[in-house]
Structures are given as C-alpha cells and as structure tokens.
Nucleic acid binder design. Structure first.
Length: 802
RNA sequence: GGGCUCUUAGCUCAGUUGGUUAGAGCGCUACGUUGACAUCGUAGAGGUCACUGGUUCGAAUCCAGUAGAGCCCACCA
C-alpha cells in the first residue's frame, strides 16, 4: 500500500504566504491568526496539489483514494493525541533553555535545522580590567556584541598564569559590571589568551558553564536580534551594528588588544539562511534517548535494513549521540500545541496555576498555547497515523508494518529515523523492513537545485518534452544506489528514444493483429525456429536478472537489463529475422510468438514505463479494461522455454553474421549488394545447424550464396575472419585489396599473439596452476588452445594471400 | 577534528561476492532511407580504470598512503 500525501511544511509555507502578504502591504500579526490561516489554506489549496500532480503524471502507483494531509482533521487529532501521550509518559517537557533561534522567522528550530558553515570572521582580543586596578585579563571572542551579557570570565583551573586571579573580579568594559573570574575545565589554555568570557544567555557552552557555577544569565538580544535594554547604550541596535559600535568603542578606550582574521564555522538556519542566535527561551522538548535506544536495536538486529547499507552508520551515529528535540515553533501554520493555560479574570495567563495538557479545552478560563509543533512531529507518525491508529483498524492490521520506505538521504534524521522511533514507541513495531535510500538529483553541474540559482528542473516540463515514461525510465537508468544524479535534461532523450523504439517494435507485428483476435502459438518449444528458442531463452534469463537486481534495489540494473533485451535482442535480432518482406504478411505462428515475447517484455517494463506499456498491453490481445497490465501477474522465468544450447548456437550465428557485416563494411560493399560467403565450421553437426539457417545469414548479412561445410578451403581472392575457431570467407573478386587484407590480418594476428602470450605466461606460472581453482585454470587452457587454433588459421589466410 | 562518497572512453556514468580481450548512453568517423523506427540501422575509432605501495597465482574490484572533488557530523571561545 502506497498512501500518497503531503505534510504541511510549516515554516516554508508560512514564509511564502508571509512574503505574499508583505507585497500587499499586510502582515500576519495585524490580520490575526484566523485570517492568516485562511490565507494559508487558500494558498495550500491552490499550490499544494502540484507535487501530487507531478507524481500522478509520473505514474506513481499510489492509492489515490487515500490521499492524506498532515493537517487533515483526523490526522491533526492524532498528532495532538501523541503529544498528550508523550507528556503523560514524561517524554515531553517544557523548559527555559538555550535554543537555536532563527531571528528571521522568529521561531526556535531544532538542531537538525541548523547548518554549520565556514565563514571568514575575526577574533577580537579584548582587555577586561581587574577590579582592583592591578591590570587586566585578555579574552578572545568572535562575537564581541555578546559581551554585554557576560556574567563571568573563566580560566582553566590548572593554568598557572591565572591561578591568582580566580576568585577576583574584573570589570566588564563598556557596561562596568563586575564579573567573577572562575575556573572551569572547559577552557582551553592554549586558545587565545587562555581566558574565556562567559555569556550563559547567548552561547551553548557558556550556558553549561553558567549552570555549573550558578552564574546569572543576562539576555541582551531580543528575538528580532536587536539589543535590548540590558545592553545599555547599545539598546535598539541590530546585532551586527552593535558589534561594530562596540568594537569601535573598545578601541577608543584602548581595550582592544588586537583583531585577527579568523575562519570558523557559524550556525545558519537551514530555512532562512540567517545566522542563528542562541537564545534562552521557553520551549517544548521531546526526551529522545529512550526512543533512540529501540530504534538502534531494530537496525542492529536486522529487523530494519538499509540499502545501501552504509546509511546505517549515519543512522547509528546520530541516534547514539542524540539530543532532545525542540518541537515548539513560534509559528501559526501547524498543529497547535495541546496545552492550556489558566487565565486570570482579565484574560491574562495566570502563572501561579498549572497548565493542562489536553487535546480539548479543559473548560472555561483557559487559553491554548500560542505555538505550533514542528512539522516533523506530525510526519514522524505517517506510517500508522494514516492507517487509523490509535484505533485498531483493519488497515492497520493489514498494511502495518510496510515493506519499504523510499527516501532521499537528506531527511534521514528528520524523517526516516524518527518514523522508526515513533513506530516502535506507539505500535511496538518498526514501520518498515527496508529503507531504500536514494541519491539526490542535482543540476548538471552537481549543485543542489534552488530557486535562487534558478537551476531547478520541473518534472512537468520534462514530461511535456519527453514523456512521462521517458522521464521515469531515464531516471531509473541514472539512479545508481546511493549516488547523486547530475541531471542534464538531455539525458531524457535516452528514455524517449527507447519508448519510441518500443512503439515501433510493436508495429512490426502489430499491424498484422486483427481486432478482437487472440493469437496464441500452437507449436511446442521444440518446434520453434532457432531464433525463437533463443529469444525465449533470453527472455527467461532477463526475467531472472531483473528479479535479482530488483531484490537488491538495483533499479539501474533492472533498467539496463530490459533496455538491452528489448533493443539488442528483441529488435535488432529477433524482429529483424521474423519480419516479413515488404508487402507480405506475417504467418500466424510467427505472429503468436512475437506477441508472446513482447507481452512479457511489456510486463517487465511496466514498473518503469507504466503508460506506454499499458497502452501496448491492450493492443496485444483483446482484453477487458479490468485485465489491466497494472494488476497483471509478474512474469516468472520458465524452464520449459529455456534452452541454453540452442541459445548458444544462435549466438554463434550472430558472430558469423557480424563477421560478414564487418568485412562488407571494410570493403565498402553496398548494403543492397548480395554477396557470396563460405562458413568453414568445426564439425559436421554444426555445419548442418548453420546450413539450416542460411536464411538468417541471407537476411542479416546480405549473403545470397552461402556455402557451409567442415574445413572448407578458402576461396580465391576472399577476405577471411576467424570466429571462435570457425572461419568466414567472403570472396571479393575484383574488390579485394590485398594490401588492405594483409594489413588487417596482420593486425588481427598481432592482437591474438599478444593475447595468447598473456595467457601462456599465466599458465607457465606454477603458482597459478597449483593455486587457482581448477575451473579457472581450465578456462585459461581453453583460451590458449582457441587462440592457437585461431592464430594458425589467421596465419594460413595471410600466407594464402601470397 | 571525526566519518562517508567519488576520481574508469571527448562528455555523463555502469562495472554484483577479486578470475573478460573493461561496458552503456551521448558525441565522433564511414556507409545506409521505394513501409517498424533517422527519436533509426550496420561497421568502427576511442581507456597506462587518479597516483604510489601492499595483499594475492591473479586487482578497475581488497588494504594502506598521496593528490583532487563533494557531502555529513562536531561545543574550542
């Protein structure tokens, strides 16, 4: 069961709508929550369906009647229900902690939504005078503006340089506040001057140090990243402006010791790309450790398997070192947090009374938490929330857990891992057995597609240009597991050409199919022509190869096997041999097998090219609409229609035919010209086999006069090619150029000699003969024997030229 | 700082557990169009598999290192 649907993409969607409003001179605060949400719903209804439309056009075989949205009433109820459950279980808590604050979106975000990027910055060395006037301590910082919130200076406990200072006080420049000098292991004596300004309210590590030492926390930055009143003279300035002013002021006062260029990593909001401001803020969190333990276990014990396996390591690494999840967002578009606060008579939140965690309003006199939940807090429930959970529905019993999750690695932590955690916690079972992690599609230069670069490729455009099947097929060919795809739209030409080829191949026999007639073969496998036995054998081999590759999620191999079978085997050889001469009809029995093989081929191709194959399927035989290919049984290989020996005989014929073609090409024999040829084959039995298929040779190599026999003499003035110990002679009276022929044979001989040399060397190596498996050694011996035989023939042919 | 991936034909990429004379698509060369397909056919050119060393009878494939490209994670201000 594949349930199609969407999450509500909280921040992204709210951003888009807010930008729209801005253009209209509106803003959400002014219009109010209700009116704003109406606007968002209108937007979602207009554009939210595009992605599903793309998927439909691509032929995704989902159950479209079950389409779901994370903000559907029922789903939303489940999300809030889960919040209450986790709270009751002690896995959700509220608290004032230092969180990643996105000043653009004015919301907290989770650690996973923060990107650390290297940026060129500076390291400012600032002198903090000692309170007793006996000197100063120098600290180094990359963020001087945060000094306004300093509440201590820390040194390493074993740093002798500063041992006497611990317990003393320094004066915070600019503001004049007195700060204690404390000792903490966290400080690295070798960094900077070895002293650290401690800013518990605006730095993660300092926050920890502050807790260890019971330091005050002073917040100087507003949620909009301007300096607040605690910043004294700098109040009201933007954080970057404040930095400049502070540095300038320090310099003026002689407290700036030096400035160094310094490249370091800074936290960026993955949404707004703005610099994250660590701020202390009251948020809701999920305790992740208990959830992570089981999620680790099911992958370790093989209950859940990653393809390719290397993603398991990433998964382990994240879960083993997991931190609590900030789930509240200061947004409006999303699931409102199901927490209610008692109000006083005048409607204000009454902080003296406890809040109530409940999906429904606990009664009069309560207001709901203003915030919404992280979008992933709803999508991590997808596998079971869409099946009716928490009720024990039939759907849940039937379809949960699922077989496979297909996803890009970009949301391994956001979604894949969290779904496993939620599944285990709420249902007791992991939501799927296999995780198929795909690469990501980049532009042709390997860059992520983005609006700002304008390098996006719209699937609907591609479908318009090349066709949905072409797009699907091409993508499958390109998708080497775990590897990103550098996508050049020109690559869809391959799929388009292939779809065209399939359609034209159908025409070869399709035009002889009468409406309403079901053509079935009556001949047994033994009665079939050699090429027919061969194509059936190849078909069965292809089915096996496809099954094997699909079982390992090697979709590129599936596509390659089918491409090869359809184009090289079916079209280039089989159809070329069975198609009737112009103006003639195809006989019933030939037609029947052509249909039979094509039908299987189309079945195998269906997952990759659902549209064209479905259309062709209904042209092959009279069928009811209900007998659609999409619900047809998957083909199985059939031993009864497999004959490896027959296939091998046909393969030899292919080689002989190719040899004639090659000679024709070298001597520029006009394609329309019929020529004579002689095949000198190894034994009488084979001679008879080949003899019986002279028609193949005539048709595909333009040989009108074929002589087949054992050990035939080379006709005068003929070109000769050795094919696996057999010889092909093409008399070229008046056309043969002896010099050209000598050169060609000479090159051929040299190449063979080189090859034989290598093989003989190997065989002369006793180590090889004694250590390599017998089969491998035997194979080499055979190669050597064949090469010697071929060389003898080639040399004889060369000598014959005189 | 740790981890991962990639480097194979002019271009974009395949290459299953080490055992072929290393493949495909595009591009290129020659020839070909009075009914399957020029979105095509036939034949062909084109590669010291990044480099160095090691393991092995045998390495594009396994190991180590080097160089280049990219990604993920991490609290050194």
């Amino acid at each position: 069961l594949w349930i199609p649907g969407l999450d509500h993409a909280g921040i992204a969607t709210q951003n888009v709508v807010e930008r729209q409003l801005k253009k209209e001179g509106l803003d959400r605060k002014a219009m109010g929550r209700e009116a704003f949400l109406e606007r968002v719903w209108a937007y979602v209804e207009e554009f939210g369906g595009i992605i599903l439309q793309q998927k439909r056009r691509l032929g995704d075989s989902a159950d479209w009647s079950r389409e779901r949205f994370t903000l559907d009433d029922r789903y939303a109820r489940v999300v809030q229900d889960v919040f209450v459950r986790l709270y009751d279980e002690g896995l959700i808590y509220r608290g004032d902690y230092l969180v990643n604050w996105d000043p653009d979106n004015m919301t907290a975000i989770s650690d996973e939504e923060v990107d650390n990027v290297e940026r060129d910055g500076h390291l400012w060395w600032i002198k903090y005078p000692l309170a007793d006037g006996s000197g100063h301590v120098t600290i180094a910082t990359t963020r001087p503006e945060t000094m306004l919130a300093d509440t201590a200076v820390a040194v390493h406990p074993e740093d002798e340089r500063y041992a006497s200072l611990v317990g003393q006080e320094v004066v915070l420049p600019l503001l004049g506040r007195r700060l204690p000098v404390i000792a903490d292991d966290y400080v690295k004596p070798e960094f900077g001057a070895g002293a650290l300004k401690v800013t518990p309210a605006h730095d993660k590590n300092d926050f920890e140090i502050g807790r260890r030492h019971g330091l005050d926390t002073i917040t100087v930055i507003h949620p909009d990243a301007t300096i607040n009143d605690a910043g004294g003279p700098y109040a009201g300035l933007d954080r970057f402006e404040a930095r400049e002013r502070i540095v300038a002021d320090l310099e003026r006062q002689g407290l700036l010791e030096k400035v160094e260029d310094y490249r370091h990593s800074v936290p960026i909001s993955s949404r707004s790309k703005t610099l994250i401001e660590p701020l202390i803020s009251r948020q809701w969190f999920v305790r992740m450790k208990p959830l992570a333990e089981r999620a680790l276990a099911v992958v370790r014990d093989g209950t859940v398997t990653f393809h390719p396996a290397r993603w398991q390591n990433e998964y382990f690494r994240w879960l083993e070192d997991i931190r609590d999840w900030t789930i509240s967002r200061q947004l409006w578009w999303g699931h409102r947090i199901p927490v209610w606060y008692p109000t006083t008579e005048d409607g204000e939140v009454d902080e003296t009374r406890d809040f109530v965690v409940s999906v429904d309003r606990p009664g009069e006199g309560y207001v709901q938490d203003e915030d919404v939940l992280d979008t992933w807090f709803s999508s991590w429930l997808w596998p079971f929330a869409t099946l009716g959970w928490p009720e024990e529905t039939d759907d849940l019993a039937t379809f949960y857990p699922s077989a496979v999750l297909v996803s890009g690695y970009d949301i391994l932590f956001f979604w894949i891992a969290r779904m496993i955690m939620a599944g285990l916690h709420f249902t007791g079972e992991a939501p799927y057995r296999d995780v198929f992690v795909t690469g990501m599609i980049k532009d042709k230069h390997g860059r992520w597609m983005s609006k700002s670069l304008g390098n996006g490729i719209d699937p609907l455009d591609m479908i318009e240009q090349y066709g949905a099947d072409a797009v699907r097929f091409s993508l499958n060919v390109l998708c080497t597991p775990g590897q990103d795809i550098k996508l050049d739209p020109a690559k869809f030409e391959m799929g388009r050409n292939f779809a065209n080829k399939l359609w034209n191949a159908f025409n070869v026999f399709g035009r002889f199919l009468e409406e309403g007639r079901d053509v079935r073969r009556t001949r047994s496998f033994e009665e079939l022509e050699l090429v027919e036995q061969w194509i059936l054998t190849r078909l069965n081999q292809t089915i096996e190869a496809v099954d094997e590759a699909a079982g390992r999620y090697r979709l590129n191999e599936v596509a390659a096997h089918l491409y090869d079978f359809a184009w090289r085997d079916y079209c280039d050889w089989y159809l070329e041999l069975i198609k009737p001469a112009p103006g003639e009809a195809m006989d019933e029995e030939t037609l029947a097998l052509a249909v039979e093989v094509y039908e299987r081929m189309v079945q195998l191709l269906h997952p990759l090219m659902p549209f064209i194959t479905e259309a062709l399927w209904h042209r092959l035989r009279p069928r009811e609409a209900a007998d659609a290919l999409i619900v047809a049984e998957w083909p199985r290989p059939d031993a009864a229609t497999t004959d490896a020996e027959a296939a091998e005989r046909f393969r030899l014929l292919q080689e002989l035919i190719s040899a004639v073609r090659s000679i024709r090409s070298q001597y520029n024999v006009a394609p329309s010209k019929r020529i004579a040829a002689a095949f000198s084959v190894a034994d009488a039995d084979l001679a008879r086999t080949v003899e019986a298929r002279r028609g193949y040779v005539e048709r595909l190599a333009g040989v009108g006069d074929l002589t087949v026999g054992e050990g035939l003499a080379k006709p005068d003035a003929s070109a000769a090619v050795v094919v696996e110990g057999h010889e092909v002679f093409v008399p070229l009276a008046g056309m043969i150029d002896l010099d050209v022929e000598r050169e060609r044979l000479g090159k051929e001989i040299a190449q063979r000699e080189g090859f034989l040399n290598g093989v003989e060397k190997k065989l002369a190596n006793e180590q090889f003969v004694s250590r390599a498996p017998e089969a491998v050694v035997e194979k080499e011996r055979q190669k050597a024997a064949d090469a010697r035989d071929e060389l003898a023939k080639l040399r004889a042919n060369l000598a014959d030229l005189g």
